[in-house]
């Protein structure tokens, strides 16, 4: 039986409760000096700025790019400064312009995949966590079956026909990622579904939909946000892999993964045409990860106080 202490929740030495928001600061700065703590809490904000910058620059590519993406401006594999700001690619096209434009399709596609797979997975997970009985057991095993499908196999199967390019990526990611999300959301839901406040909703005759969306979903927002960040990175990874394998974006369009692939043959001549898009992908993935983590902690330790998740 749990006794509620009204103010001194952390009275006993074993029960020193760490505020969720402090955790990150503690990890990095040991929680000691205010300056280090400040630095630690600034990291998620900084990565947020990186994400925002990448989004802005890539979306504004048509206005910012110094050259059209298909225009040849100099010799192939020119180094940074020799032709254009960042040099040229294997055909002598401006690397900066292609880099700016190449992120655009990736960002949009990754966002679309994340939303599609996230919504499907969350809805499935909520339902799996809430319903009971035979239907739940069967549905659970079906979802488990989908867990064993590797994304690239799904991708290659789906592209075995004539389908190519971006439209195939959304179903690929939905099929391969939604089961994982459903599992995580289901577990989080199971932790909340027995709460008295959910039972109170049942007792006032709320519909199942209202219980899932009004009562349960806000209380598992923390984990859902955290996996959304991971899902975005996962989408970027799958899209980039698809581009590299030649089943994603098709040349001559600019795309980071495609740029890495098409410039690979000359990587010994000039590493830059491969390095820049690769670095861009890494920077984006890492920033998204840190930012979504920070967001999760902020929400978990935020105004609504007690973290139900």
């Amino acid at each position: 039986m749990k006794a509620i202490t009204e103010h001194g929740a952390g009275d006993r030495p074993t029960a020193t409760v760490l505020q969720p928001g402090d955790e990150f600061a503690r990890e990095l700065g040991g929680g000691a000096s205010p300056a280090r703590r400040h630095f630690a809490s600034a990291v998620p904000s900084a990565s947020g700025c990186v994400v925002l910058a990448v989004v802005l620059f890539t979306q504004l590519a048509p206005f910012l790019a110094p050259h059209p993406v298909r225009e040849v401006i100099g010799a192939p594999y020119a180094g940074p400064g020799e032709a254009g700001v960042l040099g040229t690619d294997y055909l002598g096209r401006d690397l900066l312009s292609r880099l700016l434009a190449g992120g655009r399709s990736l960002m949009l596609l990754a966002a679309a995949c994340t939303i599609a797979a996230g919504v499907l997975g969350t809805a499935l997970g909520l339902l799996l966590g809430y319903i009971r009985g035979v239907a739940a057991a069967v549905l659970n095993r079906v979802v488990d079956l989908f867990l064993i499908l590797p994304p690239l196999v799904v991708l290659l199967v789906l592209t075995s026909g004539s389908a190519r390019g971006t439209t195939i990526l959304i179903p690929t990611i939905m099929i391969s990622a939604a089961p994982y999300i459903a599992r995580i959301v289901r577990t989080a839901t199971l932790g909340v579904v027995r709460s008295p406040f959910v039972e109170a909703a049942v007792l006032r005759g709320e519909s199942r939909r209202a219980i899932l969306l009004r009562e349960i979903l806000p209380n598992i927002a923390g984990p859902v946000l955290a996996i959304t960040g991971l899902l975005l990175i996962y989408s970027i990874f799958v899209i980039a892999s698809a581009g590299f394998l030649g089943v994603g974006t098709q040349p001559p369009a600019a795309d980071w993964a495609l740029m890495i692939k098409e410039n690979m043959p000359g990587v010994t001549l000039s590493p830059w045409p491969v390095a820049f898009p690769a670095l861009a992908i890494i920077a984006l993935a890492v920033s998204v990860n840190i930012f979504s983590d920070g967001l999760h902690r902020r929400i978990a330790g935020g105004r609504a106080g007690r973290d139900g998740a």
Partner: peptide, 23 residues
């Protein structure tokens, strides 16, 4: 039914857990 639910109400032991923390 709605009226049957309306006429009987339940108050839980743990006052914090019986209220949705996000509402």
């Amino acid at each position: 039914g709605r009226d049957e639910l309306r006429r009987i109400q339940y108050i839980f032991q743990d006052p914090f857990a019986s209220l949705n923390p996000r509402r």
